[in-house]
Design a protein around this nucleic acid. Sequence first.
DNA 1: TTGTACGCGTTATCAG
DNA 2: CTGATAACGCGTACAA
Lengths: 324, 324
Amino acid sequence: MMAEPRPERRATSADVARESGVSRATVSYVLNDTPNRRIPPATRELVLETARRLGHVPNPLARALKTGNSNIVVGLVPALTLGFVFDNALDRLTGALAERGYALLINRVASFEETETVARLWHHVSPRLVVTIGGIAPDDVATLTRHAPAPVVTDYGIIEHGRIGRLQAEYLIGSGRRSIAFAMPADPALRIYGDLRLAGVSAACREAGLDEPRVVVVGNDLSSHLSAVDELQATGFDAVCAHNDDVALLLLKALRARGRSAPDDLAVIGSDDIPLAQAELTTVALDLEVCAAAFVRHVLAALDEEIGAPPERDMLRLVTRRSA
Amino acid sequence: MMAEPRPERRATSADVARESGVSRATVSYVLNDTPNRRIPPATRELVLETARRLGHVPNPLARALKTGNSNIVVGLVPALTLGFVFDNALDRLTGALAERGYALLINRVASFEETETVARLWHHVSPRLVVTIGGIAPDDVATLTRHAPAPVVTDYGIIEHGRIGRLQAEYLIGSGRRSIAFAMPADPALRIYGDLRLAGVSAACREAGLDEPRVVVVGNDLSSHLSAVDELQATGFDAVCAHNDDVALLLLKALRARGRSAPDDLAVIGSDDIPLAQAELTTVALDLEVCAAAFVRHVLAALDEEIGAPPERDMLRLVTRRSA
DNA sequence: TTGTACGCGTTATCAG
DNA sequence: CTGATAACGCGTACAA
């Protein structure tokens, strides 16, 4: 509960050297298995043993200062909750990086508006690479790239958002719907993905000779979804592509609250296939592993690390249930 | 999309010194507003200007190496998604720390079982403080504390989980329910909180002269909730305290799938008051800001930073809707 | 195997 | 009072 005092200075490589009666250089060679350096097994063991005994962990600061390389990857994600697709991707990335000797450290950034907020970070950490994920606008990534002390990669373009919208709309059109709307979340962090998904919906509508989809914006509460449902019913829409399952489920709730139901009064289709969707929601399922793998490959490539073959499965899959 | 090459070496304080024709010491004094050091406004401005012009950001590694203090706070959270109560707390903490000159960097840890996983982290970063949040077991925090290169604080005890369970049970009992169950998530990261909430439910039952609550364990899918509902119906329970709203909502879905409904066939009460709960779920609302503030105060105290007065509002509030 | 210069910012000590 | 010199923190890697 309380912060426990830890007065004990951590053991330095000099401590290990002194304790084992060798030079600091030797310690470094042993601990790093330096190539082209032959250390007699005896000293080698001795050094390793004392290091273990003293609990020596090489000071990351000194190492990074000298080598100019911190092996830290900073992940920049927007504040607020991301949802389990991204969370899973971050977890896979954490693991993949750990296996290769990097550490993924995530900073939740409240606002990219003021460059100040992010810039302050570089006073505290010198990453080897910066990764952004979770709906950061291309503009922000661009300014970030200019000021970051390391290369920047983004998740933009990894998930086929346009195809998600397209799959949603094509399914609705295929089942006879003719006036299609899109429910867009107000959350700015979702906006960038929302625009892409909407573009897919639009394209599908255009190709089917339908009107442009009407866009209704919803917040994170039931009431805004009630308004959305009212608006769609009043204007005679018969189907709505929700940006994601959270929105879709709230639309279903709103519909029910109005004494109506899906799909008869309004067909509702979501995206992501979250656990709560299983009961009734027609949705575009995102294959967690495929999404994560694509993201991880992207990041590893930026680090010039070995990457295996891409997964073969399709990232997206339509799941039909009762709501549409 | 691609990692952009950034060959330009970042400007060091030596560059600033040379460029402005002063010594490195002077640069340092100016940039740090070192007390007991009077710098004439002229040189002061000159140094600041060249620093700005060169885009100089002091190397965090060198500074930390010298001062022995990195101003980095590492947050350890379990892999998988935390939910918006914790996410909000992390966001508030990020902001509060940034204001005070620290950076919160979060590492998602897959497993505390192998100490290896976490220990590797200290090869990459030297935090000033380590914060754990999100259901890490006291045992794991203890071993962590022994091996971390900095003090460790945990969120354990900040949220009154016991009182949540108590509020749930007391409400159900107060509305006439006599056989009360508890739905516990299988997710190990929630287990620790689940046990505390269950303890609160138990206590309330005991005090009301009722049997110990039966515990049903549920996963992250509908089917396990169907089993849970079946089990509760078969054994004649008339009310269930769900560990959180996600569980509660899935129980409601399961109930409906079985052609039953709440509260008549089974009273269901949740906890947290997530947006999706608004339509029908009786729940214990957690005041986001109060939770976050308590957590932030706890962390700031460990850093010996100024902390304001605690919030006055109660962290918990019962919200009655249709499900119980 | 060892001595030692180096990376870079900080700060105690010293000179003007 | 203003400024410079140099040692230091700690691990690395080259010359010896």
